[in-house]
Amino acid sequence: MNKFDELPIGAEFSLFSQSVDTHVVAAVADLRQISLILDEAVITLNNSFFSIHDGLEAYRDSCDDLVVDQVTPSMNKAVTALQFHDLTSQLLSRVVNRLDGLRDIVGYTQHLPSDNSENIAERLTKLDRRMLELSDVLHNKFSQSLNQQHMESGDVELF
């Protein structure tokens, strides 16, 4: 018999939820770090592109117009593509919020009574029901619509 066989069922769930919580907290921290790195990189790119663009326009008279006219559209496309920064930031935020919600669901098991006074099957049924309710709430919080994959996603012709 191992140590878990000796524990009341509530205590077993508590150990389980603490273990999950540790990993989820670490995952959320990593995602927040990704978001910070992405923000900094895109802001730098954005500033740089606009500086190049402004520089080209300022020296239009002394540069060959053909060169400026060839470079400017590519520059504009690059800047426009940075819209994905907004989308990725929103997606990262959704993942973080979903993981936080998952912590709440799993954390619920920490509040189970730590003795074996209730019938185990009945307790597991109640637990299952409550976790499903929390899961539905979490699921409904997030829209499923952020799945754009290319620059021509913009056109919506409903009106």
Partner: peptide
């Protein structure tokens, strides 16, 4: 960023002139 049908309908009912989903090009705008 959201292309949810409910949002698009809500925008139309509230009187939006039009609706555009990110990312979009200069041509679409």
């Amino acid at each position: 960023a959201e292309a949810k049908k409910e949002n698009i309908i809500a925008a139309a009912q509230a009187g939006a002139s039009s609706y555009i989903v990110k990312p979009f090009t200069a041509a679409t705008l």
